[in-house]
Design a protein around this nucleic acid. Structure first.
Lengths: 105, 105
DNA sequence: TAATTTGGTTACATTTCGTCAGTAAGTATA
DNA sequence: TATACTTACTGACGAAATGTAACCAAATTA
């Protein structure tokens, strides 16, 4: 791959958001902490990829993972960290832009 | 693929931005109309994919393509449409977020 | 005539995605 | 006791997207 004169931080940030599902997962978590299956039901994503993306987002520090071992089948809850929450205006901006400019066939 | 209860406009908007290179190409065009080779040099993207992405963006109405046939080797200039320019605050928001929150290894 | 430039396209190997099946641990049902 | 069920995953496999490199047409310059 070629190298660019781009700011590497910006490039990495774009690489995060410019990955399929990432934006929608963050959007979903904006409405509050949620369990794995809740996110899976809200988005048209398969469990396999959701698991993969959440692992990425956790590694990048945008999402926090909490396991409830007390209850019957293990329940796992995901929530936004401060870093993830800081993306709220960006994501809501995309939502607003979509409402204004996107037209469906 | 499963169906979701998401707003289809938002879903489509995210699908656009959540595609590799799209964000960086739009960012590059924010600094003004540019020729194919200028974008190619500014970003770590190959000509093959740049051509593909610009075709998508033109089809979606975010980018305008103008061919200069008068000059020697054909020159093609790309610029943002009003729809594309409307994404400026979003893209600059991602840039700002990256500066603040991204850390490099 | 040969080499260069621009904006691509084609070919092909690698990577990622989507779908489906299966797993572990504990619970409820028959 | 055996079976089925739930949650949160993981593995396998074909399909689609990506990265790399080579090639092309048209006009220009050396």
């Amino acid at each position: 791959m070629k190298q660019s004169s781009l700011c590497p931080k910006f490039e990495k940030g774009m690489q995060l958001l410019g990955k399929r599902w990432t934006g929608l997962i963050l959007y979903q978590l904006l409405s509050g902490p949620q369990r794995f299956c809740a996110i899976e039901e809200a988005l048209p994503i398969s469990g396999r990829l959701l698991s993969e993306r959440l692992k990425d987002l956790e590694k990048e520090g945008l999402v926090h993972r909490h396991v409830y071992t007390d209850s019957a089948p293990v329940r796992v809850e995901y929530s936004l960290t401060e870093k993830g929450l800081a993306l709220e205006p960006v994501i809501l901006g995309i939502e607003k832009w979509s409402q204004t400019w996107i037209e469906l066939e």
